[in-house]
Design a protein around this nucleic acid. Structure first.
Lengths: 166, 166
DNA sequence: TCAAGATTGATGCAGGTGCATCGAGTGGGG
DNA sequence: CCCCACTCGATGCACCTGCATCAATCTTGA
């Protein structure tokens, strides 16, 4: 027997869509106004900077970021064009390659974290108590885990550390 | 004094981004597999179908949907191209126009609601108790209300009624 | 009444995304 | 060893979005 979606589920869905798009807009707007590239660049730079040797296979990056293959490919193009990363050959698998973050890339990632963390604080931290943030995370987790598995979100637990966006 | 974003706020942010993008992907994928157009079309058709006379000024539609003006303009183009709506002149303001939903538009909106409500149930309703859905809505609301004001989400309270997507 | 400014809606351009497909390279079974 | 299936990554295409700007019209206020 197929249930109709409850009013509550529907309402939660609507708010989830509306709120995240507005908050994300605000954050990206702040970053853009500060002259930074889109958040996706930050995510990629962060993943690269955390990888051992500062390099990853595109296919790894793709899995970390949960974005499609072609999207990764073109994002890497842009990072390379801007000198934030470089492609290196992969000796063990000639189909593949490594992407290595450059010093400029590391430096940009750190600078972006300044603006980014400020935006998170402004649009999330200042609106929610820690306890409520924890509750929200818990409820959201239950939604995420089933349409394909949910990766453990890579959260910094050292307050001096940088943190990924998504 | 400027606080660092708490670990909890950051973690909530990450989950918000990841979870909504995955859930939205799942829902849009289901609709696409059923041969339906994107959710934005549904939203527009719903707004039109609820408007008195089934017609709205583009500028109204834009405010309802919280999307930019040029985006509305082109969305209307597509709806008109597909025969789901038509443009009508606005006699009181010659700059403007009315957009009126057609019968085909109303019919598509209803058919989409079938697939759409099933997807909401599948990806949200089945994962969350009603009580948790209410909690989630409440927490999300607190995030939404401040970067620009939050519109009251137009929620159907009659289970036979259709419901907007965002 | 009329000029200045605001509002409505369209559009050219640059860039990003999804989809399908391709070529190169790998690896496993016969 | 060789062929077939698979994986890795790139790319052409269509479409969609954001941004800037435009023309037309409306409104305001001197």
């Amino acid at each position: 027997m197929k249930r109709k979606p409850s009013t509550e589920a529907t309402s939660a869905w609507i708010r989830l869509m509306r709120v995240q798009s507005r908050v994300l807009d605000c954050v990206e707007q702040d970053l853009k106004k500060a002259g930074f590239p889109p958040l996706a660049w930050y995510d990629a730079l962060l993943e690269l900077s955390r990888a051992p040797g500062g390099e990853l296979r595109p296919v790894e990056l793709e899995r970390q970021m949960l974005i499609p293959q072609y999207s990764t490919s073109r994002l890497i193009d842009r990072l390379v064009d801007e000198g934030l990363a470089c492609r290196r050959e992969c000796k063990i698998d000639k189909r593949g390659q490594f992407v290595e973050i450059t010093e400029a890339g590391r430096e940009l990632q750190k600078r972006m974290w300044g603006a980014y963390s400020a935006a998170i604080e402004k649009y999330v931290g200042s609106k929610l108590s820690d306890a409520d943030a924890v509750k929200l995370s818990g409820l959201l987790d239950r939604l995420g885990c089933s349409c394909g598995e949910m990766k453990l979100p890579p959260v910094a637990n050292n307050t001096n550390e940088t943190t990924p966006s998504r």
